[in-house]
């Protein structure tokens, strides 16, 4: 993968809005955003009610994902262009999710909703009607998904990248600063994890930085396998996207349980402060 295959620009997208076989999909942190205006023709995915199992803490399964995409009118052969707010956090999460379930052609709109809006490109409120399909998801590709035991095993043996803000990494905050901080789990980071906040990979307008800038940003990663994590797995999807899909790095996993799981486990090691800490 590379920038050319994984990303499309806002300019390209606007010229190709009605191209057959392309489906624009908005995935937001603010699930009301779509209703206030979206890219013409775009359908909406609700990351919380549609991509998450509503009982267990996990994703919807292969069958549920198949049913979901069928109901959205997305076919296995469609090129899916994902975009969203908050610098594409949830769009990147959905991108990883589409890859997890083996979708063939999926791309991110560089800059997401923010750049589209700041550029003054068209937004509409009408919801498109797409005929249902018979989507068939593949089994989860676990080569891109890390579970908690793999994270523990990675301490001191693989690259761990904590992509949260520096204050969350150090244990001074438990959540991003646009959310209340009252939570029960412990603060800190996985020992030996390096801190590379996801935001360093993005420009102010939400577009990704250049390949050279991105390579320099992750220069501390060595040739070992890599696991990225954040708090709930969406910001680390953004970093996973940079490492795997833009820079083409091998063996990169996203730990979707992330700090809300790790920081609540009994007996696991935690490091506090601004440095990685030993194992």
């Amino acid at each position: 993968m590379s920038r050319d295959t994984a990303l499309v620009s806002a300019e390209w997208a606007e010229k190709n809005l009605s191209q057959p076989g392309l489906v624009f999909v908005e995935v937001d942190e603010d699930t009301a955003a779509y209703g206030t205006g979206h890219i013409p023709g775009a359908v909406r995915l609700d990351w919380k009610t549609e991509l998450q199992d509503q009982v267990r803490r996990d994703f919807v399964d292969q069958e549920q994902f198949s049913a979901l995409l069928s109901s959205k009118g997305i076919g296995n052969g469609d090129t899916v262009i994902l975009y969203g707010g908050n610098n594409n956090w949830f769009a990147a999460y959905a991108y990883w999710y589409f890859k997890l379930y083996g979708h063939g052609d999926v791309k991110l709109l560089d800059g997401g909703r923010k750049k589209w809006e700041l550029d003054g490109r068209p937004l509409v409120t009408e919801v498109p009607e797409r005929a249902a399909t018979s989507y068939e998801a593949k089994p989860q590709d676990l080569s891109i998904r890390a579970f908690r035991d793999e994270v523990l095993a990675a301490i001191g043996t693989a690259n761990l990248v904590d992509v949260r803000s520096p204050d969350e990494y150090a244990g001074r905050l438990l959540a991003p600063a646009h959310l209340p901080q009252e939570q029960s789990q412990r603060a800190g980071h996985v020992p030996t994890a390096i801190s590379v906040p996801w935001s360093k990979a993005a420009n102010e307008d939400g577009t990704f930085k250049s390949d050279d800038e991105l390579r320099a940003l992750y220069a501390d990663l060595d040739e070992r396998d890599t696991i990225a994590y954040c708090r709930i797995g969406e910001r680390s999807s953004h970093t996973w996207f940079v490492l795997k899909e833009i820079l083409g790095r091998e063996n990169v996993k996203n730990y979707d349980g992330s700090w809300t799981e790790y920081g609540s486990l009994v007996g696991v090691p935690i490091a506090l402060g601004d440095t990685p800490g030993g194992n």
Partner: peptide, 25 residues
């Protein structure tokens, strides 16, 4: 209602939820 397990952006115009302790925040 701000869900502590999400990173969802809360409605910026909504009143601060009653669960938020302003002595700590």
């Amino acid at each position: 209602v701000v869900n502590a397990a999400s990173c969802a952006a809360p409605d910026q115009a909504a009143p601060i939820p009653a669960s938020v302790d302003l002595a700590k925040e």
